[in-house]
Simulated scan of single mutants.
Amino acid sequence: MKKISLKVGEGKHHVCLHTVFCGKDAILSIAGGDVPHIGAVAVAVPRKSLTGDGSHSASVSVICIAGHKEDELARSIALRLSALWFCNVTVSAGIHINDVEKEDIVILRKNIEELVENIIDKVKDEMH
């Protein structure tokens, strides 16, 4: 199994991405902040797009732990990577900052997007 770990940000804004490739499929864990945890898990399955243009899409199922808000984050990343890599993708996400403020959310979103772009760049030529 191939494993890739990436990190972006410092202090309470750090976010880690651990990826394990199981054959063609991918498992991603995204955690960070003051209290890394599991807040939501999304499993995406690739399919041909319903547009009929030959492009790829994906369907996703999400489980969110009560009181957590990482469901949309896990969902969007799983959908994007499953369609892009045309494989099953599981994303676990859990990021918590104590006494979070709006600026913290903006920084975390930027750091998470950078992580996703970095993993895409790292495996670009390997997934086909």
Rank of each mutant, 00 (worst) to 15 (best):
K48G: 09
G52M: 06
T51S: 11
L50I: 08
G33I: 03
C22A: 13
E10H: 11
L28I: 11
A31M: 10
V45F: 02
P36N: 15
G54L: 07
D34M: 02
V8F: 11
H13T: 11
H56T: 07
C22V: 13
V43I: 13
C22F: 00
C22G: 00
V15W: 10
D25P: 12
G32P: 03
V35G: 04
K48H: 06
K12L: 06
G33S: 10
I27Q: 13
G33D: 08
V8E: 15
H14C: 12
I38H: 03
I27K: 08
A26C: 13
V20W: 12
G9E: 09
V43A: 07
G52A: 02
H13A: 08
S55M: 03
H14M: 14
G9M: 13
D25S: 14
P36F: 08
D34Q: 05
C16M: 14
G32K: 12
G11S: 14
G33F: 03
F21R: 14
D53T: 03
T51N: 04
D25E: 14
V41E: 09
R47P: 01
G32E: 14
P46L: 11
I30H: 08
A31N: 09
A42V: 05
G23A: 12
A42K: 10
H18L: 14
T51I: 01
V43Q: 06
R47Y: 00
P36L: 14
I27P: 00
C22M: 12
C22T: 11
K12F: 00
S55H: 04
S29C: 09
V41Q: 08
V15D: 07
H14W: 10
T19G: 11
I27R: 11
T19L: 15
I27W: 10
H18N: 15
L50C: 00
G39W: 04
I38G: 02
T19P: 05
L17M: 15
C16L: 14
L17Q: 12
I38D: 10
K12W: 00
H13V: 04
G52R: 10
H56R: 13
A26P: 03
G52C: 04
V20P: 06
G54M: 11
V45C: 07
G54S: 04
S55I: 04
H56F: 05
G52N: 07
